[in-house]
Nucleic acid binder design. Sequence first.
DNA 1: AAGAGGAGTTAGACACAGTCCAACCGTTGC
DNA 2: GCAACGGTTGGACTGTGTCTAACTCCTCTT
Lengths: 140, 140
Amino acid sequence: MNRIQHTRESLIAMLRRHDVNPTHQRIEIAYALFGHGAHLSADQIMARVNGRHSETSKATVYNTLNLFLEKQLIREVIVDPNKVFYDPNTEPHYHLYDADTGELTDIDASEVTISGLPQLPAGVVTEGVDVIVRVRSRLR
Amino acid sequence: MNRIQHTRESLIAMLRRHDVNPTHQRIEIAYALFGHGAHLSADQIMARVNGRHSETSKATVYNTLNLFLEKQLIREVIVDPNKVFYDPNTEPHYHLYDADTGELTDIDASEVTISGLPQLPAGVVTEGVDVIVRVRSRLR
DNA sequence: AAGAGGAGTTAGACACAGTCCAACCGTTGC
DNA sequence: GCAACGGTTGGACTGTGTCTAACTCCTCTT
Ligand SMILES: [Mn+2]
Ligand SMILES: [Mn+2]
Ligand SMILES: [Zn+2]
Ligand SMILES: [Zn+2]
């Protein structure tokens, strides 16, 4: 687990580096995601950002998350059919998903090797390889 | 690609084997999925089943797909944040997803090796490992 | 044949994540 | 002061998927 300290200043710098104008709302959302560390859904981010008093609208949360995605600040993890998780970790890594608790954990990519994937037809370019280990913790 | 011929009779037998009472609607839905071969979303299945004249309601399509899942006749593939794909192939295998065309293709599991996945905490049981190769075909 | 019961199906209401839009706000430049 | 522009906003809207209460269809019992 990364123990990076995210100051307001370092977040602003990061936004600028990725060509994102650092507005108040964007900084708050970046803080929610990078400060917490990992894997929040849009409504969890919404809740964190608007903890004390309402500050940021639903539209802005989605606008900002999609902007961050486009600018490659974050990535999305699709494991649950009814909500997307946003991942502040853009390094290549894999995921472990507990369907019972809803918890999503990182698996270090450097430990894992995948071999034998077929080569792709011409003109097709790989965006990434997702690996999701699905588990259950509650006994059935 | 599997070239299995699915007769009405063999589908009924399959449903019975999985403890599913073979009603008209269930046979139609099984036919849509197994007849077509691979990876349809709920509304694609709906469209195939109700091709000529309306026969099967949305509720029944979802009821039936969830029943088939529960009875392990099919599996679900979660790659697109706004629709689930249903997969008549329950053998272990992986997927290739083209985000531009929306096409989902199988990757034979026997060719692929994954090593180095961490072992899990006690009491946690693996449901499966999903591998999704994400590609783009349209040049950007 | 008549009725009870149970499994399955149905239309339509509903829930809810995510998008869209037109009005609005805040800063910058003239 | 005022225009211009990027960003934000509430609220309407869309698309998947679920829920419910009424209904249909079979089978079983008498
Ligand atoms: Mn604030
Ligand atoms: Mn028919
Ligand atoms: Zn992650
Ligand atoms: Zn498949």
